[in-house]
Amino acid sequence: MSFIGHPFAFDPAHGYGLEGLLGVGAPGGPPDFDGFWRGRRAAAALVEPRPLLGDVVEERDGFRVHEVSYDALGGRCGALLALPCDGPVRHGFVIGHGYGGRHEAGADLPLPLPESAAILPIAPGLPALGLRPEVPSTPDGHVLHGIGSRDTYLIGVCVAGLWGAASALLELVPSPTLDGRRLGYLGESFGGGIGALALPWDDRFAAAGLTVPTFGNHPLRYTLPCTGSGESVRAHLREHPEAAEVLAYFDAATAAARLRIPVLSACALFDPAVPPPGQLAVHNALAGPRRLEVLEAGHFPYPGEAEERRRLRRITSEFFGRWMGG
């Protein structure tokens, strides 16, 4: 599809076609990349989630949606919890969101499999339940917060929030069937990027779906203009090139090379916010069973978008049915 007449001062495809995108690689990462993340995961596992179930805020698609909070490495987190109105729970999902934050659960319901529950964590600092006084709530500030050190960078706190959400879900859902089973993960854009960073180190997950994932192949991303959080990072690096050493620990494509569970990737050919080469860098690096669904565009409206989204929902259900059991 041609997006002639788009309003951007750059090419959101960055000159790549599908064949070129399939050849994009991933940085190997720092020598202690694995050790850093295993250490973070071990520290996170010591934090008791102490989940607190709040009021029902919405009922739709056969689910009751509650506000919840829980503890994770880096502080108390907010989330939504979607529980089926009737019947048992056999599957559990953790669902990440885009960089706009999360105000409701509607876009993520119904879930890919029947008899499922899901926790939908809100990244620390982002609207609405994740807001923190000391953390910028807009993407351009959020993506730079704490970037002076790998130990303080906010993206690491967001990754830990996903691990904590999984722990909270397993405590909140009174299902012996779920308690002994592994989980599914779904994440789009920002949620896809932090999901790729979180999943290799957590064996509670059986399969994942990553849609237009961000944070893939930072060295390449630095060269590509965009309208998303990556542009803020590009500007910061011009003044602080040493930040590249920190960002090397938060490369979703580097992490994907350690990810061995089955992953469904939905990546776009045209995307002004998340450059497509970074998205495909994540998919191409995946070390386990993988499936690629190509989207015409991401973060941009286009004819046929609704139908393409419906098709992706169907494929997602089939994918998780295969790897987690229907």
Rank of each mutant, 00 (worst) to 15 (best):
D34G: 01
P133T: 02
D251G: 05
S137E: 03
C226I: 05
G187D: 12
G141Y: 00
D203N: 11
S317W: 06
E296D: 15
Y70D: 08
G191V: 12
P241G: 03
A72P: 06
S175V: 11
S69H: 00
F250A: 03
L22D: 02
T152C: 03
P275T: 06
P289S: 11
A235R: 14
W37V: 05
H97G: 07
L80H: 10
G164A: 05
P200F: 14
V47R: 00
G184E: 14
C267N: 15
A248T: 04
G195E: 12
G192L: 10
L109M: 13
R290G: 15
T211F: 14
P114T: 12
E242K: 00
G326N: 08
E19Q: 03
H142M: 01
P139G: 05
I155R: 01
L224V: 09
L264Q: 14
A255D: 08
T138E: 09
R322A: 12
P7Y: 06
I95R: 07
H6R: 07
D203W: 02
R90S: 15
G304K: 07
C158N: 06
L18V: 11
R260E: 14
H299F: 14
R102Y: 05
A297Y: 10
A248Y: 03
G39Y: 02
V68R: 00
E307W: 02
C267E: 09
R60T: 15
V159N: 08
G98Q: 10
G161F: 01
I4F: 08
W323E: 10
E245P: 01
S116P: 12
L131C: 02
R311T: 14
R150T: 07
L73M: 04
C85G: 15
A165D: 08
G187R: 10
F36H: 05
A165F: 06
L292P: 04
P133F: 04
F250S: 02
A198H: 09
L295G: 09
R64N: 06
I155S: 00
A306L: 13
M1R: 09
F215K: 00
P121F: 10
P121N: 09
I4R: 07
D11L: 02
E58W: 04
D151M: 03
L199G: 13
L126F: 02
H142A: 01
H142N: 01
E242M: 00
G326T: 08
P49L: 01
N217S: 11
V68E: 04
D86C: 10
G98Y: 08
R64H: 11
G23F: 00
H283Y: 14
P110I: 12
R38F: 03
P84T: 13
D32G: 02
H299K: 07
L162G: 05
V135C: 01
V135M: 01
G156M: 05
G326V: 05
S317K: 03
G321M: 05
V282I: 15
H66K: 06
A82I: 14
E115A: 15
A243D: 06
L154D: 01
P277N: 08
E305R: 15
A244S: 11
A72Q: 02
V47N: 02
G321I: 04
G228K: 06
F3P: 08
M324R: 06
L183R: 13
L312S: 11
L197Q: 10
I315H: 04
P127F: 07
S2I: 08
V94C: 11
A252Q: 04
P51M: 01
A235E: 12
F319K: 04
V65M: 09
P133A: 12
A266K: 08
P27Y: 01
R102D: 09
L199F: 11
D271H: 10
E171N: 03
P121G: 11
